[in-house]
C-alpha cells in the first residue's frame, strides 16, 4: 500500500523523460503487434448533439440575468427522482426504427467515472475562454437511454435534453432553445455512463453548458446501423458545469465571471 504513492508519482514524471525511455535504443522490438487488429474496431466514445430552434420567440429573460441557485436546487431535488419527467419517446423511436433496442434509464445512480488527468485552474479558465459560447440554460426535458450494440458487449448510453437559454455567459448565440444529445459507449458493467456533469442533469435544473455544432454527415455506427446524429439534433454537450450566477464550477475551481473574456 505504501508504495502506491511512489508508483503513482513515478507515473507523473516529466513527459520528456517518459518519451526518451520509449524512443531510446531498441535492439529488439517487443512483440505486441498482434493485438492491434483485435483492438482496432473497439473505439468507444462519441458525442453528438442537437440544437433546434423551437420558434418560441417571446421567451422571457430572467430579470436580473442570473439564477437563484437555492431555489433551483430545491426545484431540482423535488423533481429529480421522478422518472415521469423524462421524455424518452423521441430518441427511443429513432433507435427502434433502426431495429435497435433502446432501454430507458430512469435513475442513473451508478456512473462510471474515469480517473481524469489533472486540470489546472489556468487550463479550466482557458477552456471557458476558448469555447465557442458558454451558456446558462435550464433543462426542459431530459431522457436517458441505453442501447446495446448488436454483435458486441458494448452498450451505448445516450442522453438527450432540451435546453432553454437563460443567459449567455460568454460568446454569442442566436438561439433560445437547444436540443442536445450526448453519447458514451463502454463495455464496463455500469448502470449508466456519461460525460462529466451530465449525470447531475435533471429537469428544471440550471447549469452552464458548452455546446458544439453537429456536422451534417455525422453518424453513429451501432452494430451495422448508422444513426444520423443530425436527425436527432444540432448540438452536443462538450461540458456541463455548475453555475450559481456569478461563479462557474469547473472541476475543483470556482471561476468568477470576471475572469472570463467576452
Amino acid at each position: 500500500m505504501k508504495s502506491e504513492k511512489l508508483q503513482d508519482a513515478i507515473g507523473e514524471v516529466k513527459d520528456s523523460l517518459i518519451l526518451d525511455a520509449d524512443t531510446g535504443t531498441v535492439r529488439k522490438q517487443n512483440s505486441w503487434i498482434k493485438w492491434a487488429a483485435a483492438a482496432a474496431g473497439a473505439v468507444l466514445i462519441l458525442t453528438a448533439g442537437i440544437l433546434y430552434v423551437s420558434g418560441s420567440i417571446g421567451r422571457k429573460e430572467d430579470p436580473d440575468g442570473k439564477s437563484n441557485a437555492a431555489a433551483e436546487q430545491e426545484s431540482h431535488d423535488e423533481q429529480s427522482d421522478s422518472a415521469a419527467e423524462q421524455d424518452h419517446s423521441g430518441p427511443a423511436v429513432i433507435f427502434s426504427e433502426q431495429g435497435l433496442d433502446a432501454e430507458l434509464v430512469e435513475d442513473p445512480s451508478e456512473i462510471a467515472v474515469n480517473e481524469m488527468p489533472y486540470v489546472s485552474r489556468e487550463e479550466a479558465v482557458g477552456h471557458l475562454n476558448s469555447a465557442g459560447a458558454v451558456l446558462e440554460c435550464t433543462v426542459e426535458e431530459i431522457s436517458r437511454i441505453r442501447v446495446p450494440e448488436p454483435g458486441s458487449d458494448s452498450v451505448w448510453f445516450i442522453t438527450t435534453m432540451t435546453l432553454s437559454l437563460n443567459r449567455v455567459i460568454r460568446g454569442k448565440t442566436e438561439e433560445e432553445r437547444f436540443r442536445v444529445v450526448n453519447a458514451a459507449v463502454t463495455n464496463m458493467p455500469v448502470d449508466f455512463f456519461c460525460y462529466p456533469g451530465l449525470e447531475e442533469c435533471r429537469k428544471q435544473m440550471h447549469a452552464a453548458f458548452i455546446l458544439r455544432d453537429v456536422d451534417d454527415g455525422e453518424v453513429w455506427t451501432i452494430g451495422d446501423q448508422e444513426i444520423s446524429v443530425k436527425e436527432l439534433g444540432d448540438y452536443s454537450v462538450v461540458r456541463c458545469l455548475s453555475f450559481d450566477g456569478t461563479n462557474i464550477q469547473y472541476e475543483n475551481y470556482s471561476i468568477p465571471l470576471t475572469e472570463l473574456e467576452n
Partner: peptide, 9 residues
C-alpha cells in the same frame, strides 16, 4: 478503450 474516453473528456 477507456483511455480514449479519458482523452476525449
Amino acid at each position: 478503450n477507456d483511455t480514449w474516453l479519458g482523452a476525449w473528456n
